[in-house]
Simulated assay, not measured.
Amino acid sequence: MNNGTVLEQAKSFLYKNGRLLDRRRYEYHFEGGSAEAVIDALRAYQNPDGGFGNALEADIRCPYSQPVPIEMALHVMDEVALYAPDVLDGIIRYLRGITLPGGGLPFVFRSASEYPHMPWWKTDRDDVASINPTGLVMGLLSKQTTNTAIFEEHWFLKNVAYVWSVIDNEQPSGYQDGIHWIVFLQHAADQERALPQLAKIDDWLQRPETIERDTEAEGYVHKVLDWAPARNSYAAKAIAADDLNLHLEALVRQQQDDGGWPICWPTVSPGAETEWRGWVTVERLKTLKSYGML
């Protein structure tokens, strides 16, 4: 593998096709770019209500704020280790308003259907709580230290209680559930309560059907490096070194001729596919860097 060629081709792809946000993310991770520049690009997706929309989640094309883009915005701030106070304050204000009476955040609002969207972003109700995105949102909010006063606010405690109720009474059903459980449990304030649940997660990760270990598996599957995109990923403990090496080698092979990486799900439009590929390409480069392959 020519490490320089991998990076050079990916950069070319991103500058031809990627959103400004993903170009800034690339610059931050590989060219000494600033965290502030990443956050400046992220701000363009934030609405006056403090939430995020405007196709930050590329298959929800509506301009209105939606719950899942909040998760993505928090992911961006976490990856550059900058929870900008103004952006975070807007997120908190938005979450205060959409937290359901019994706790939890909806998966998606009906307003998503007013604009192009993939079928899974359609709902008939705005009042059904979902572990996705509540788990990861609350996990990342618990991790940040920019605004710790929220930890005692009623809406925050209601959402934490909702996530605990899911974890105490259900089993994760796949990757989308699993990552929300893991991030929440890693950063939950009550680690004495979290540890037995993490042990349950450890057992679940070891099941053959949980992590896809076939490097050539097709369709909407989540493989070794989706679960362990970095050396310090929680799920890495469940992955043998040989499997990890096979998937890293496959990841390099999967870089396409245009320099970007593919995605494994259908999108609402060719433009949305290109936007997703920009996001995923930065994620794949981050993985290769974390494992010492760039």
Score class of each variant (00 low, 15 high):
F156Y: 15
R213Y: 13
K143N: 01
A84D: 15
H222T: 07
E8Y: 10
Y28W: 07
S165N: 11
P119E: 03
I182R: 01
N47F: 06
V224Y: 07
N159Y: 05
N17Q: 15
A161G: 11
N232T: 07
S233K: 03
E170R: 13
E8N: 14
R213D: 08
V80S: 05
G292F: 02
K223T: 12
A161C: 00
G33R: 00
G18A: 09
T5Q: 14
G278A: 12
R110K: 15
K11P: 09
I91M: 05
C264K: 08
R24I: 01
S233H: 06
Y45R: 01
S165R: 14
G32P: 08
N169M: 02
L136P: 00
P85A: 06
E216R: 11
E275I: 13
L56N: 02
K11L: 04
N17Y: 14
L294M: 12
A241H: 10
V183G: 00
I201L: 05
D226M: 08
G18M: 10
D242F: 03
R24N: 04
S113I: 06
T123E: 11
A161R: 12
I179M: 12
N159D: 11
D40Y: 06
T287Y: 10
G53L: 04
I60W: 02
L244M: 15
D40K: 14
A272H: 08
Q186P: 07
I98T: 06
Q176E: 15
T146Y: 10
D40Q: 14
G174Y: 09
T215W: 10
C62Y: 03
E71Y: 14
S113A: 15
I39E: 02
V76T: 10
M138Q: 08
H247T: 11
P229G: 00
W261R: 00
T5A: 14
W204C: 00
V183N: 05
P172I: 12
D203K: 15
Y175L: 07
F151A: 11
D258L: 05
K289D: 08
L185T: 04
Q255I: 02
D257C: 00
K200S: 11
I91F: 03
W164R: 08
V38L: 04
A149F: 07
Y94S: 03
G90Y: 04
R93Q: 14
G103W: 03
S173P: 02
K200T: 12
S130H: 13
H117P: 03
I92R: 00
Q206W: 12
L140T: 05
L157K: 13
T5M: 11
I263D: 00
T215A: 15
W265G: 02
I92N: 01
F30P: 09
G135S: 04
Q255E: 04
R24P: 01
H75C: 12
F52N: 06
W279I: 13
H187D: 06
L185A: 06
